[in-house]
Deep mutational scan, measured.
Amino acid sequence: MIVFVRFNSSHGFPVEVDSDTSIFQLKEVVAKRQGVPADQLRVIFAGKELRNDWTVQNCDLDQQSIVHIVQRPWRKGQEMNATGGDDPRNAAGGCEREPQSLTRVDLSSSVLPGDSVGLAVILHTDSRKDSPPAGSPAGRSIYNSFYVYCKGPCQRVQPGKLRVQCSTCRQATLTLTQGPSCWDDVLIPNRMSGECQSPHCPGTSAEFFFKCGAHPTSDKETSVALHLIATNSRNITCITCTDVRSPVLVFQCNSRHVICLDCFHLYCVTRLNDRQFVHDPQLGYSLPCVAGCPNSLIKELHHFRILGEEQYNRYQQYGAEECVLQMGGVLCPRPGCGAGLLPEPDQRKVTCEGGNGLGCGFAFCRECKEAYHEGECSAVFEASGTTTQAYRVDERAAEQARWEAASKETIKKTTKPCPRCHVPVEKNGGCMHMKCPQPQCRLEWCWNCGCEWNRVCMGDHWFDV
């Protein structure tokens, strides 16, 4: 396979590697080409510095992935760790964990309700045991953590790749202090920090972006993250068709209702045909949960890209028209025109101005929308079919299609509260000796007794199943 190397943020060049090629071997190839010592090179990928003893497969490097290699003399205490030698983080029983690669970060837990604080980093599902597709590297999971809308060759929703760059020099040479644990960490600028490894760059702020994971991409090709779309790892039924499908869209209502993408497309087109989208002054033209839940309008309007190009163009047109109407304007009634106009409040005669090729020149009556006339309008008909009709959803289907309910059931079956801080902690095999993952707590306690870890627990039921 081919990976592209950008040395000291210059133009990239291809390097041929195998899945079992080590990072140090990659350094040696680059060092020979650039005429520099291999031990002064640092390989940066997806916000993480890659260790010498890791392989291309370990690092989730795919065909035509772009890695950054910078030349920086080692500072005291760094060289041993980078070589894969006596790194205290690798000691058996050590409590410190390697910062998780962005290629394996899962933010789907952050669609849980606000009262489930902490689960994004504490609760991990076991539903990723799908067998890898044919042709994928051994052991590589097909679980997708992110979804994007690819405006490039795909023109559809695709699995996405999370990447990070330095907000100062805009190069992907920043190593994160810690990985993101929720969508806010990724979507809110300057929320996460790190250290830029580019020479002479003092940058410390992280800037995240997404790429389409279905095809090789260049540095400049980015895609918009659709953070309401998630892999259906909890096997929730769709609120409309009641099938279990994946991926799904999880509405931001209190129940976190789930809808499959085909039904979401149908829901949007139906509402669009009836012009029953909601115009929100802050958000724009949007839709609420299909069950009509309060405070559930979709905030990231790129989710409506699921409509496809033709329907999305209609959505944008109707949204612009609705904006004009909300501002007190009118639409030209001549067939084939429909231009938005903003006449004076007491102006009865409205002319669709033909300047700049935008208007048709038609003069019409503001009251009856017919060709302009003197005197009273002959008839004014009330528009028919403008009443909002509820999208029919079966109550039982709505009850079963809740992301929140599956989460709470998982928590109930696989977790116990920490005796000190009461945060839910998952036990997935292993011994009875637990350690609270909350940095402010870190209590060592017994899963069996529910009390602080002691010699009695150690001698009596340390390794009970």
Results as ranks from 00 to 15, higher is better:
149 Y>M: 07
321 E>W: 05
154 C>Y: 01
250 V>A: 03
317 Q>D: 07
57 Q>A: 13
256 R>M: 08
189 P>N: 06
461 H>M: 01
96 E>R: 08
442 R>D: 07
387 T>R: 11
450 G>H: 07
226 L>Q: 01
315 Y>C: 08
212 C>E: 01
6 R>A: 03
202 P>R: 11
219 D>E: 11
285 Y>W: 13
341 L>T: 10
40 Q>M: 09
445 W>P: 00
342 L>C: 08
33 R>L: 06
305 R>I: 07
343 P>C: 09
243 D>M: 14
79 E>S: 12
234 R>N: 10
224 V>I: 14
387 T>H: 12
172 A>F: 07
357 G>D: 11
128 R>Q: 14
302 H>G: 10
113 P>K: 13
19 S>T: 10
351 T>V: 07
280 D>R: 07
253 C>G: 01
176 L>N: 03
27 K>P: 01
89 R>L: 13
379 A>C: 07
290 V>Y: 06
450 G>L: 02
460 D>R: 06
70 V>P: 00
385 G>I: 08
298 I>F: 01
304 F>L: 05
168 T>D: 10
417 P>V: 15
182 C>Q: 08
282 Q>Y: 09
25 Q>P: 01
201 C>H: 00
428 N>G: 09
339 A>C: 08
376 E>H: 11
147 Y>T: 02
240 T>P: 01
301 L>T: 13
395 E>P: 14
45 F>T: 05
135 G>K: 13
126 D>Y: 05
289 C>I: 01
100 Q>T: 11
237 T>F: 05
168 T>R: 08
443 L>P: 02
355 G>P: 14
333 P>I: 03
320 A>G: 10
75 R>L: 10
118 G>Q: 10
429 G>L: 11
177 T>H: 13
151 K>T: 14
119 L>T: 15
101 S>G: 11
202 P>T: 12
258 V>N: 02
259 I>H: 00
266 L>M: 12
465 V>L: 15
343 P>T: 09
181 S>N: 12
115 D>F: 04
439 P>V: 15
141 S>L: 11
75 R>N: 14
95 C>N: 12
430 G>Q: 15
337 C>Q: 03
204 T>E: 09
228 L>N: 08
187 L>T: 07
96 E>K: 08
50 L>F: 01
249 L>S: 01
320 A>V: 10
30 V>L: 04
374 E>P: 08
102 L>A: 12
240 T>S: 15
161 K>T: 11
134 A>G: 11
291 A>Y: 10
59 C>T: 07
382 E>V: 11
436 C>M: 02
335 P>K: 04
167 S>A: 13
31 A>Y: 01
276 Q>M: 12
181 S>I: 06
256 R>A: 08
225 A>Y: 04
282 Q>W: 06
378 S>D: 14
85 G>Q: 11
412 K>S: 12
92 A>N: 13
35 G>Q: 07
86 D>Q: 09
172 A>Q: 14
170 R>K: 15
131 S>I: 11
18 D>S: 13
40 Q>C: 07
425 V>F: 08
439 P>M: 05
185 D>T: 01
10 S>K: 04
391 Y>R: 05
191 R>G: 05
107 L>M: 13
161 K>L: 11
454 N>D: 04
435 K>N: 15
187 L>A: 05
